[in-house]
Design a protein around this nucleic acid. Structure first.
Lengths: 219, 219
DNA sequence: TAGATTGTTAATCGATTAACAATC
DNA sequence: TAGATTGTTAATCGATTAACAATC
């Protein structure tokens, strides 16, 4: 796995929210949008929004804000969302179905070209228009389909095998939704999505607001 | 929405990964686990792991590490994962099916007591054993079912309405998977899960490793 | 015992926030 | 013009990392 430190990672993670809001503004007919407005809508500080937008290279106009059309283009270009990327999804279960049906991804250059599953009854079917192939064919198919991204949604016990296979098949990036301890070969971009992290935050916040729980360990 | 700053949020988000690994160690028969071992497995620094574990109140033994059974208990207690919390899931689509089927949550006190959907054909059915009710009944049901958490998986256009309804019905916390600009009433714990953030990171990382893309805007 | 590991205190690093001149 | 907003430079804040004595 390429152990890369991405500078300004928190800023990058906020950009999609900005983009979403700015697109709405555009649809509502606005030509300019101010950092202040974005900040208010998302409960952030205006200075933070301005700093975040600056990394995309956009230049705003004092008093008016940022021009929405160039701003959308700048964010999309910075994220490389103006470029189509072919992706396979390993595991054709409920999560795979949810992800392939999630319109937001397709709007941003993520093109699902195939799903893979071990279950015979799924092979040959489609999920949201994405053909399901047999897991055995994964290595050939990555090349045939021209996939550069592999999204892993298999059960934890099969995650390592799936990662080894797609890595061997030559994908550039792995996006892992499986909650397992895995190792990823050098040189492959790796992003893990951990739903239990968000749940942990939710639980701690719930404890904070309830007056009955002490929080001596938090300071 | 309670605009609460949670101290040590990054540490809290890492705790679930530690817990997963420590549980494995326990299953493999280990009585102690060192911060160094955890750090190596997760590609982190040992000092970071020790600092993170310290917030749970656990005390380790020099040379041996942390006792696994008390450590598991300490993390679970810190996250309030040793307490059952009833949750409803608003929207009974693919994502709801994926979430209710995700074992990891049930192991950590999240008890799905009901799902809600507007589609008549879904009402009365079950998803992973969770009964699906009509969206109209949501206010009564939150009370009947004793739900303190509402998980929102409806399409963006209906997110605000869903949030207003569950808030009015008295849930303590909202976990929102819908990518929409929403407002949440004061006093309700709110956590948003944004899959496009992770995708944005993946895309930027891919651009970093590819030598063809310049990155003048990143410094 | 010797040495690996903890826990504490201090240093560094990076992200957020503040201040303010420039400007449309 | 007056005033809201940008973009830059500096200050603050918090998280990560380093150093090291304590200890089993």
């Amino acid at each position: 796995m390429s152990k890369q430190k991405i500078p300004a990672a928190p800023s990058i993670k906020r950009l999609p929210s900005y983009l979403h809001l700015i697109r709405q503004a555009k649809d509502e007919g606005y030509d300019f949008i101010s950092g202040t407005l974005i900040a208010n809508a998302l409960h952030l500080e205006p200075i933070q929004v301005r700093k975040d937008l600056a990394i995309t290279g956009i230049v705003g106009k004092p008093k008016r804000g940022y021009p929405v059309v160039p701003l959308i283009a700048a964010i999309e270009h910075f994220l490389d969302w103006d470029n189509t990327k072919n992706a396979i999804i390993v595991g054709a279960g409920n999560l795979a179905t949810a992800l392939t049906g999630y319109q937001e991804f397709q709007y941003h250059g993520l093109n699902f070209v195939g799903a893979f599953d071990t279950a015979r009854e799924k092979v040959g079917k489609q999920i949201h228009g994405v053909p399901v192939f047999s897991m055995d064919t994964i290595k050939e198919q990555v090349k045939n389909l021209g996939a550069s991204i592999a999204i892993i949604t298999v059960p934890p016990a099969h995650a390592q095998e799936a990662i080894d296979n797609v890595a061997a098949a030559g994908v550039k990036a792995i996006w892992n939704f499986s909650n397992a301890k895995v190792t990823v070969p050098e040189g492959i971009v790796y992003q893990r999505e951990d739903l239990t992290s968000g749940y942990a935050m939710l639980c701690v916040m719930m404890g904070e607001t309830s007056p009955s729980r002490t929080m001596t360990n938090l300071d």
